[in-house]
Nucleic acid binder design. Structure first.
Lengths: 255, 255
DNA sequence: CGGTGAGTTGACTTGGATCAAATGAAGTGG
DNA sequence: CCACTTCATTTGATCCAAGTCAACTCACCG
């Protein structure tokens, strides 16, 4: 049976949308079916969507590049990272199935970060300009795009909360719990995690040192919460994992 | 003369939009003037915009609340923070003139964070539902909203970069530089900052302890970069401040 | 199998948190 | 106008969680 984790056996879409397994959940579909209650498609011509296949290490887009396309991840996984003038890099998110990509924009309309494939990955590509025109035909689609961006904002806020208020162990545990929640949301298995990213990526994302991530994975395993074998993590005790993720060591509050 | 900082002497708008000083820069205006090149307004009825006045401490919206409105800050300042089950709170952003608010959405359509006035603040309120319908009439407006959200995503990514990769001094310095950049972008003074938020808010935003923020402000002053008097900061040496904000690993820090 | 890079483990150091106490500013009401 | 409370901020002294440095193991690959 093997309900696989999102990054395993990723396949390119032969024909965009038409053969897409996620079609019914995709925000772009709202454009072609403006009235989900069955009142039928409107006259708006279909939005041209193309598919692009990436291999491990390939860039979907790079920071500073003129941002002309918007993307939806169909299969696989990407990391999104920002760099600055002094060479520091920071992973700010991991994207998987269904996530919107390419929307973080600098004031002058360039990509504010870089998206890089962690694995064989397939994305749906649409011209941002055409997407905006297409939204004109469909409040429901506008809403879907707005909501996707809103969800990413919420994700980042939660990441900031974790990095700012939780200790290293809590950060790592809640990272794992977050991955499980995401998998459940996508209808995948929730007792196992396949980590598509390196320890260094996890460390950057959680603002920790690689050594700390490694030590803590060992510790979580020792505590009986998970069983770790390289990039393969079995969830042994989800409740324990959640509790390790949760409580903070009574830090300062804002009134 | 006194070009004041954005939060001083904030006034409510007597009549939304019509009398708004920022009218020409407002993303909502794109809705009423879909063709900026002068081809004239289209038939789309005006989007109903109301104004709301907040006083220090008032909530614009609260985390968990059903998200039905979207906001644009007209004057004043707000802090945006997220909390979690264990009571931890984290300031994830400060909003001022022209910023979009209320767009961080949980999966079930609720506000993912709380927005609270730091000062007397005026915001423009529009129903998200009506906004989405209105965007149907104007790709340019859809683009403006998309870009605003994209800019907030970029802001958060940069905050993550700072918190993850910079030491305390660099974080504080780049926070100040960021405020100056924002002020310059709005056409305000760039040699002076009026901090509308408490030290605790700054500390949370930068993921530092209040004591550290206080100590570092003293240190930046000692280095001759700024002159601090409570919430009033004079920029003495912008280049120095920038250099203190910039480089990461290199130990050219103060004594 | 030797080489290479990722991951783990151990020993030691330190930046910034925490604890504690003083000082300052802004009321409040007598 | 001044005594008194309250809360924000600053300053000082100490400590520890996580970073850094270093050595080793493991998987994978030509």
């Amino acid at each position: 049976m093997a309900l696989v984790a999102p990054t395993t056996h990723a396949k390119p879409l032969e024909s965009p949308c038409g053969g897409c397994v996620r079609r019914s959940h995709c925000m772009l579909q709202a454009l072609n079916h403006a009235a989900p209650d069955g009142r039928g498609a409107h006259s708006q011509p279909d939005l041209p969507v193309t598919s692009r296949l990436l291999h491990r290490g390939d860039f979907l887009y790079e920071q500073g590049e003129r941002a002309s396309n918007t993307y939806v991840v169909a299969a696989g996984a990407l990391k999104v990272w920002t760099g600055d003038a002094s060479g520091d890099q920071q992973v700010v998110g991991f994207l998987s199935q269904g996530d919107l990509a390419g929307a973080e924009l600098t004031r002058d309309g360039r990509h504010g970060s870089t998206a890089q494939a962690l694995d064989t990955t397939s994305v749906c590509v649409v011209s941002t300009h055409k997407l905006m025109s297409a939204l004109a035909g469909s409040p429901a689609a506008a809403r879907a795009v707005f909501d996707s961006m809103g969800a990413r904002l919420d994700d980042m806020a939660n990441l900031l909360l974790r990095v700012g208020q939780k200790n290293a162990e809590q950060r790592l545990a809640s990272f794992l719990v977050g991955l499980l929640d995401k998998q459940r949301h996508l209808g995948l298995v929730t007792d196992r995690i396949e980590l598509p990213m390196s320890r260094a990526d996890m460390a950057s994302y959680l603002s920790l040192a690689v050594e700390t991530v490694s030590r803590l994975l060992t510790r979580l395993q020792g505590a009986g919460a998970v069983k770790v074998q390289r990039s393969h993590v079995d969830v042994v005790d989800l409740e324990l994992l959640r509790s390790l993720a949760g409580q903070s060591a009574e830090r300062h509050r804002l009134h």
